[in-house]
Structures are given as structure tokens and as C-alpha cells.
Design a protein around this nucleic acid. Structure first.
Length: 285
DNA sequence: GCCACTGTTAGCAT
DNA sequence: CATGCTAACAGTGG
């Protein structure tokens, strides 16, 4: 589910509605969610939420005294508020109750890929989960972008999905970025010309900013913290649009499997150039 | 029922 | 090291 724009939307919402609340207790319904010792959760009782950060696709809830809750939502994780006493459904993995509040914050995750790590450090960004991440795409200086592509031999689509390259881009936004930049997903990154690199950088910025402004993309599971859908799916130009006309030239959008991921692109606007032989299968639908 | 597909990435192979 | 494929899980749709 959540890529950078969705996690940013969730973080902003929690920042507005959860900062300042005092944690009354945390209930863990699915032990597999927690990386680490369940006893750590006890330390959060009585702590106030002091801030909410996003790093790549990860969400960091700061609770003072160096205590942080680090969530990765993976494919289907998400938060929502529920009245105290509302029965949890089968996919609710965690509940956070607050002092003097009649609503709890619930974490749901159908596929159970998500995780929670309790960090007890003033420098959570240096931890094992966050340290390997590449730069934040919306904070990086564009002048530093070209060097990130130097010597990269794989496929551009796969590189965009590599969180050590840039943090936060997932399958939807990789395809939308490549379309906007008019670059074929199989392009060899190190072969990009100066102008193509500039187009790619601009596309990264534009697509992510527009998606955040729209509250992210809701394809099937994603809802924000208040149960609202994002709107950016209405602006998708290639993702999930196989066989439909390219909004730029009218050619039929094609689908390739690259690195096991569906990849949608316009065969006319995104010409194969500097491309390596496709190892992707040719899906029949 | 079976098969393909899904917004992620850790872990393993090459 | 860099790159590529797949399994982990649960649900949906053809």
C-alpha cells in the first residue's frame, strides 16, 4: 500500500491529531508485528507523543526521552481511530489507548508484512532499519542527483524501487515518474544523458509533490488515518492502465514484468534506449 | 477449486 | 559489491 506520499499523508494526520496525547497503554494482538521484546511496549505508558516523522516509507512516532515507535506499513498496513470498546476486526494488530480520549489508535495490516520496532535512542535515524536508506527525494539537492546514477548497471525501474538509491518510491510512483520523464523502465541508469537525468529528477519532484498534495493513491486498501481515500489514483497516467490510451500520445499503455513487479509504460513516449535485454516475462494480461 | 495478481522487502543466488 | 528472483501473508477476481 503505502509509498512515500501515503506515509507522508498519514504522518501529517497523526501530527495534527496525536501529538500531545498521553499513551495509556499499548495492546499487541499479533506478536509477529513487533521486532524485539514485547516488554519494551510497557515503557510507553504515560509518555506523550511529541512528534511524528517520516523517513522513506517508514513512520516514526516520537514519545520523548528517546523513545520512538518505528512502523513499516509494507503492503497493507494502516492506522485508524476507533471508539473505545469498538470490537477490533481480524486484521487489527495493535491498539494504542490514550489518557482522556474516547478513541484509540488502531494499526491494521491484512497481510502481516508490516513491523514495529521500539527504539530507545535520541538518534533513531541511525538504527538498523533506517540507516541503509538513501536520500529523501524531496530533500536532496538536485545537483547531487546525477552522481547517484553513475555506474548503475541495472534497470532504471528497479533502481527507482531500491530504497538505498532514493527512499520512499514504490511501484506506482516509479511508473508514474518514468512516464513523466519519458524514460523506458529498462533503460540502463548509467546511460542516461544529461537532459534525461534532468527530466528524471524533475519527474521525481513533480510526481511526489502532486501525490502528496492529493493525499496519496488509493488503489484498494489504502485509507488515511480518518478512513478517507487519497485522490491521486485519479491522476495516474500509466499505472494499472494496460491497454488504455496514453494521455500524451494515445498509444496503448503496455505492461511488462520487471524484477517481479508490474510495470506500466507508454511504448511510444517511453522509447527503449540504452536498454538491456528484457528478462521480464511477457504476461498475457 | 485453481491461478494470477496486489501498494514491500529480506534473504538468498548469481 | 551490485543486481535479480522469490517467499513471506491474506485477500480478490477471473
Amino acid at each position: 500500500m503505502p509509498e512515500l506520499p501515503e506515509v507522508e499523508t498519514i504522518a501529517a494526520s497523526l501530527r495534527r491529531k496525536a501529538v500531545g496525547l498521553e499513551i495509556a497503554g499499548i495492546e499487541l494482538y499479533f506478536p509477529g508485528l513487533l521486532r524485539g521484546d514485547a516488554a519494551q511496549l510497557e515503557k510507553y505508558r504515560g509518555k506523550k507523543i511529541t512528534g511524528v516523522l517520516r523517513r522513506g516509507k517508514m513512520l516514526l512516532i516520537a514519545c520523548g526521552e528517546g523513545l520512538h515507535l518505528l512502523f513499516h506499513l509494507k503492503m497493507t498496513g494502516g492506522f485508524h481511530w476507533a471508539r473505545k470498546g469498538t470490537p477490533r476486526d481480524a486484521h487489527t494488530r495493535l491498539r494504542i489507548a490514550f489518557k482522556n480520549l474516547d478513541r484509540d489508535l488502531l494499526f491494521r495490516d491484512v497481510r502481516k508484512f508490516g513491523f514495529l520496532r521500539c527504539l530507545e535512542t535520541a538518534f533513531p535515524l541511525a538504527g538498523a532499519e533506517l540507516r541503509p536508506l538513501g536520500p529523501e527525494p524531496l530533500e536532496l539537492d538536485g545537483r547531487d542527483f546525477p552522481s547517484l546514477l553513475a555506474g548503475r548497471k541495472g534497470r532504471l525501474k528497479s533502481l527507482l524501487l531500491d530504497q538505498r538509491f532514493l527512499a520512499g518510491i514504490g511501484n506506482i510512483y516509479a511508473d508514474e515518474i518514468l512516464f513523466e520523464a519519458r524514460l523506458h523502465p529498462l533503460t540502463v541508469p548509467s546511460s542516461l544523458k544529461v537532459k534525461e537525468t534532468a527530466r528524471l529528477w524533475a519527474a521525481v519532484q513533480n510526481v511526489l509533490k502532486k501525490a502528496i498534495a492529493a493525499g496519496g493513491s488509493s488503489i484498494r486498501d489504502y485509507k488515511d488515518t480518518d478512513g478517507m481515500d487519497g485522490l491521486f489514483q485519479n491522476e495516474h497516467r500509466v499505472y494499472g492502465r494496460k491497454g488504455r490510451p496514453c494521455p500524451r500520445c494515445g498509444a496503448k499503455v503496455r505492461r511488462l514484468v520487471i524484477g517481479g513487479r508490474s510495470s506500466f509504460f507508454c511504448p511510444r513516449c517511453q522509447r527503449p534506449r540504452g536498454r538491456r535485454p528484457s528478462k521480464g516475462t511477457s504476461p498475457s494480461n
